[in-house]
């Protein structure tokens, strides 16, 4: 009974996405800290993570416990630099990305939380407490 809950695709997926969201927060922290560093290129999650995740989910493969699939950071090649110093950070963009990431993170912790609450309910027969 316990195993299926912790192995459920939603739970495992949420864990992976939480890792990704925490990593993105670090990237944004670095981008804002370096908003005035000449030649700095903004960092973001590498698009390969999302692509691999999507294709594996579509193929019906289980991503649970697969350590080869982990989020990585890369320079954001789509960000254009409009400044003479070659820095591609736009502070408004970073703050919006940070807030978006925060909502996503809150949502994911909620999903993980609910999974654990279900398990508690199964054990005790009463929710919440």
């Amino acid at each position: 009974m316990i195993d299926p809950i912790f192995q459920s695709d939603n739970y495992q997926l949420s864990r992976k996405l939480l890792d990704a969201a925490a990593l993105r927060q670090e990237a944004i922290a670095s981008n804002i800290a370096n908003a005035e560093t000449p030649g700095y290129r903004r960092l973001d999650l590498a698009p390969t993570f999302a692509e691999q995740l999507k294709s594996r989910m579509a193929a019906g493969e289980s991503v649970a416990g697969d350590d080869s699939l982990r989020p990585t950071l890369s320079e954001d090649l789509n960000a254009r630099s409009v400044r003479p110093d070659g820095n591609s950070v736009e502070i408004e963009h970073e703050l919006l990305a940070m807030n978006k990431n925060s909502v996503e993170y809150n949502y994911l912790t909620e999903v993980v939380s609910n999974n654990i609450k279900q398990l508690k309910l199964a054990i005790t027969g009463q929710g919440g407490a």
Binding site: I28, E36, L95, M98, S102, T109, S113, I116
Partner: peptide, 29 residues
């Protein structure tokens, strides 16, 4: 003004990071 805006932006990142950490601690509660 440039320095104080940059400071504020970094401060909001710090606050946000703290909120995320608090959310993490609330998992399962």
């Amino acid at each position: 003004i440039t320095a104080s805006r940059a400071y504020e932006a970094n401060l909001s990142v710090a606050k946000n990071a703290k909120n995320l950490a608090m959310k993490t601690l609330e998992i399962g509660k």
